[in-house]
């Protein structure tokens, strides 16, 4: 069977499933409200007095920390709980194709959510004269960040039939990936560890790699980091799913 039509069919079904339940709309509203609140209120968009979306993107990792695991938690745990995984994997499709298809559908859903924040871009362009290249880079970085967290959520949702457990596990792993590069944590670490060690640990953080995008720099090392975490998580998802069936 050709790979892409099958992936397309599964992804289409998966994406439609998001919009067939009210959860999708709740998610979108919460995401848009929170991103607005963080940008304008906590981020001090107006007080900064500069035409940039810095306050918008700075909060993205923290927002995604809660919202992306919420999107990804049902990926495989629901299939296993309802037994539909048996249906899906006995159709002419290879497990990796199903994993990639479901992942891409959820990623597309997050991309839609991100795209719906376009009013902030319009606002900042209306108020001043921002560097739109930096804004595009920020969006690319946000999308990659969301994809990374989502791949981790895919892995934790394969581990358990319980969506709540999948959510919490994903949240904890994502939090770890943030904290190892979070300034207060790295400052604290540097008090009793050598600087090279702190830097090595921080290089595993999504924050470290997200920073470049915020400044408008597309670095291959950052891209490589995000894509390798995604690839590793999806590969492990496959291993976990197989181990359930192998007995």
């Amino acid at each position: 069977m050709r790979t892409w039509p099958v992936i397309g069919t599964i992804a289409k079904r998966e994406l439609a499933a998001y919009f067939e339940s009210p959860v999708a709309y709740v998610f979108l509203v919460v995401f848009l409200l929170l991103s607005g609140f963080f940008t304008f209120s906590l981020g001090g968009f107006f007080e900064l007095g500069e035409a940039s979306l810095n306050s918008f993107f700075t909060w993205m990792p923290w927002l995604f920390l809660f919202l992306v695991p919420a999107v990804g938690m049902r990926l495989w745990s629901e299939e296993r709980r309802l037994g539909t995984i048996e249906l899906l994997l006995t159709m002419p499709v290879l497990p990796w194709q199903a994993i990639v298809a479901k992942y891409l559908a959820s990623w597309a859903f997050l991309a839609i959510a991100l795209a719906l924040t376009f009013p902030v871009v319009i606002t900042v362009n209306w108020l001043g004269d921002p560097d739109n290249g930096v804004i595009v880079a920020g969006y690319v970085g946000s999308l990659l960040l969301a994809g990374t967290f989502l791949a981790i959520a895919s892995l934790t949702s394969a581990l358990t039939r319980n969506q709540v457990i999948a959510f919490i596990l994903a949240l904890m792993l994502c939090l770890l990936l943030i904290l190892v590069g979070f300034a207060p944590v790295t400052t604290m670490l540097s008090r009793f560890a050598d600087i090279w060690l702190v830097d090595t640990v921080a290089s595993f953080s999504v924050l470290t790699h997200f920073e470049g995008f915020q400044k408008g720099v597309l670095d291959t090392r950052d891209l490589l980091f995000f894509f390798s975490v995604i690839a590793f998580s999806l590969f492990t998802t496959g291993v976990v799913l197989r181990s359930h069936r192998a007995g």
Binding site: M1, R13, A17, E20, S21, L82, G83, T84, E86, L87, T90, M91, P92, V93, L94
Partner: peptide, 19 residues
């Protein structure tokens, strides 16, 4: 894949996508 193409399967408890 070649084997699954030839096969139809009704799993126990007949699962399907509820929504």
């Amino acid at each position: 894949i070649a084997a699954k193409v030839k096969m139809g399967y009704l799993p126990e408890a007949a699962p399907s996508y509820q929504e």
